[in-house]
Amino acid sequence: MSILQAPIFLYSTGPFSPCSCRRSIRATANAPKTQMSPPEALVVAKFYAIMDVVADRVEMHKNIGAQRDNWNHLLLTSINSITLTAATMAGLATTGGTGAPLVALKVSSTLLYLSATAMSVVMNKIQPSQLGEEQRNAARLFKQLYREMQTTMSLYKVTNIDVINEAMEKVLALDKAYPLPLLGAMIEKFPKTVEPTVWWPPKRHRRLERLGEEIDGNGWDGKSEEEMREIVEVLKRKDAAEYLRLSQKALKVNKILAISGPLLTGLAGLGSSFLGTTHGAWAVMLAVIAGVLASVVNTLEHGWQVGMVFEMYRSNAGFFRLMQEIIESNISLREVERRENGELFKIKVALQLGRSLSELKHLAALSSSRNGEEAIEEFASKLF
């Protein structure tokens, strides 16, 4: 008897909303059913309750992701406007003569620079572009989980409490990987070590009663197992390692920019505070030039969304780790009837890597040979 492994389709298509989720639930509920015992009916009711929660999670993360995208645009515009206004005031202070006009421009420029420094520190700490990417990933993965649960209801008789426990574990794992609150639970934006994002619970094997006949042999043989092992090796050696390397580079760039922005606005504020003194010439140069450079740095960091790029690379590394675990969890089972059907499984893996079945076999053959340069340089994924 085959089992339904966690699907590895991470990118879903088509419109989605809680209303459509609930309509499909009602449609399924109104469909003709076989008579169930009260315990079985309770398990199905629990499963539908979890599906409803998952549908709500999709909308929650979608809305919060849009909000945090707005934070990125509004904060970037505000900080750059304040910084350039302060630089303009510092420049005008040198032509404003002495007395009250000079003091007014000097104090205003200094206060604006201090405000920009404080806002920049907060923005660099929370990284709104990265927060938005986290919420987009969460919405997509909750949508995937909902459709996986729909597939389970369509193909299997959900009468086992283990199915409920597994669904709840997946919801909680996603909640942990992509938290909603900022205070206390926010993901560290500048970690000491870069690790792939993990949004799934430990793999467990379960049995489900299938609505239909089994495929003889379950689609597995020794050659198929060896091909999957070679695919895992390529994923580890090339794809996952490459995206971890890119994540580390993006993190380094983001750290440099996050430190440089507030530092430059702070120096500009210091320079503006010395306007009108014996060091006035150097002070105005520091105030104006540092302010302009701070605007450039902020635009590079948040306009180009370096934090989002870092999160995207880390999420891609997590995707390849998930594929490795799914493949390994299948081929590690000695009882082939407990695995997902081999033919279906190979189609899923090939599509996730952007390859045809023949290309997947060719990649496995190249990896097993380890002789030519192509076998060393080629990546498993052709999608990204």
Results as ranks from 00 to 15, higher is better:
223 K>T: 08
128 P>F: 06
200 W>N: 10
180 L>N: 00
133 E>C: 10
159 T>A: 05
221 D>G: 14
122 V>Q: 07
164 I>C: 04
149 M>E: 02
219 G>S: 07
181 P>A: 03
100 A>W: 07
150 Q>L: 13
181 P>W: 01
103 V>W: 01
137 N>D: 12
133 E>D: 08
102 L>W: 00
179 P>L: 00
189 K>R: 12
216 D>I: 05
142 F>H: 07
120 S>E: 03
95 T>Y: 05
163 V>A: 05
128 P>G: 08
220 W>S: 14
108 S>H: 13
134 E>N: 10
206 R>P: 06
93 A>I: 06
91 G>F: 09
175 D>K: 06
171 V>Y: 01
120 S>H: 02
153 M>D: 10
159 T>C: 03
187 I>Y: 00
101 P>W: 01
169 E>A: 11
176 K>M: 02
217 G>R: 02
155 L>H: 10
165 N>P: 04
150 Q>N: 10
116 A>K: 12
136 R>E: 01
142 F>G: 07
103 V>E: 02
206 R>W: 08
221 D>Y: 13
91 G>V: 11
172 L>C: 07
191 P>V: 03
148 E>C: 12
161 I>M: 09
111 L>H: 15
117 T>D: 02
193 T>R: 11
226 E>K: 14
107 V>Q: 10
215 I>V: 12
99 G>A: 04
95 T>N: 08
147 R>I: 14
221 D>A: 14
202 P>N: 13
103 V>Y: 01
204 R>V: 15
179 P>R: 00
100 A>R: 09
93 A>L: 05
207 R>H: 14
184 G>L: 15
212 G>W: 04
135 Q>D: 09
173 A>M: 12
138 A>D: 12
165 N>Y: 04
198 V>K: 13
110 T>G: 03
140 R>Y: 04
111 L>E: 15
140 R>K: 10
197 T>G: 03
127 Q>V: 00
133 E>R: 12
148 E>I: 11
168 M>F: 04
163 V>C: 03
207 R>E: 12
122 V>D: 06
93 A>Q: 05
176 K>Q: 04
107 V>E: 11
157 K>A: 11
135 Q>F: 08
96 G>D: 02
118 A>Q: 09
128 P>E: 04
104 A>V: 09
175 D>Q: 08
226 E>H: 14
124 N>R: 00
106 K>V: 02
205 H>L: 14
183 L>K: 15
